[in-house]
């Protein structure tokens, strides 16, 4: 029942993001029929065109923003709406309220990460181009693993900052600021940046001409991201337990 409650509370965000991401991937690939190869780069491989438009383009930006928004919600939001009393009256402790919400958000985020995996190879085939599903699957793994960072940051903000719009602002501006810091001040350390790890940009994971994988996935970095996410979620759980409603 708690999972269903979490789904009902987050489904509009998830379905809206899924619709925009699917539509974007679909139209981007369909457009390749008309504008690929670009006039200025007639020898550009199709796989590099897809990487620039999807894995290093709008899909990535929307995914990051929506992953953070999926982490929001919970008791602080309910307090604002006045429904927290009913939720707290359920015979479960606060951790049991938090973890289903986290699990549903993580599954939704993983589903969003898998959209290009489903849409790109299939739509590419319909226009007579090929995009290897194995590489799309690797990008989906990178997106989903780094996505746990954005979801857990959203969860932390949702329990620490009162007010739906304030938590939204804090969550999104934390992302914007960290993106700016990683692309500016920390530019010399690209492997630290989740934004680079997500799509292999500025790392030696990809062949620079085709933008296909030439190295195994950075499992240690991904494990570190999961560990950071777990730590952040543990912090969120601790804050949630101590909140006085």
């Amino acid at each position: 029942m708690l999972y269903y409650k979490a789904w009902l509370e987050s489904r509009v965000r998830f379905l809206a993001a899924g619709a925009v991401l699917s539509l974007y991937c679909l139209t981007f690939v369909q457009r390749a029929r008309l504008d690929f190869p670009p006039a200025l780069e007639p020898t550009l491989p199709y796989t590099a065109h897809v990487w620039r438009g999807i894995y290093n383009g709008l899909d990535m930006v929307v995914f990051i923003i929506m992953a953070a928004l999926l982490g929001l919600g919970g008791l602080e939001r309910e307090r604002e709406l006045g429904t927290d009393g009913f939720t707290l009256a359920l015979p479960v402790d606060r951790a049991q309220l938090l973890w289903p919400r986290v699990a549903v958000a993580m599954v939704e985020m993983a589903a969003l990460a898998a959209i290009p995996l489903v849409v790109v190879p299939w739509t590419s085939a319909t226009i007579g181009r090929a995009y290897p599903a194995a590489h799309a699957a690797r990008f989906a793994i990178l997106f989903a693993t780094t996505g746990t960072l954005w979801v857990s940051a959203g969860v932390l903000v949702s329990v620490a900052v009162p007010g739906s719009y304030a938590s939204m602002a804090a969550s999104l501006l934390a992302q914007v600021t960290s993106a700016a810091v990683f692309s500016g001040t920390l530019r010399a350390h690209p492997s630290l940046s989740p934004f680079n790890v997500m799509n292999g940009a500025r790392l030696s994971l990809l062949d620079r001409s085709t933008d296909l994988f030439i190295a195994p996935l950075p499992w240690i970095t991904l494990a570190a991201f999961l560990l950071v996410s777990a730590t952040v979620l543990a912090g969120a759980s601790a804050i949630s337990r101590r909140r006085d409603f």
Binding site: V12, R13, A16, A17, V20, L23, Y24, T27, L58, V61, V62, I65, M66, L69, L72, G73, R77, S164, Y165, M168, L172
Partner: peptide, 17 residues
């Protein structure tokens, strides 16, 4: 509030699509 926020945040991206 989340419906309005998500609609608002996705609008620029929908426009770009």
């Amino acid at each position: 509030e989340f419906t309005a926020a998500v609609a608002a945040i996705l609008t620029p991206f929908g426009y770009l699509v």
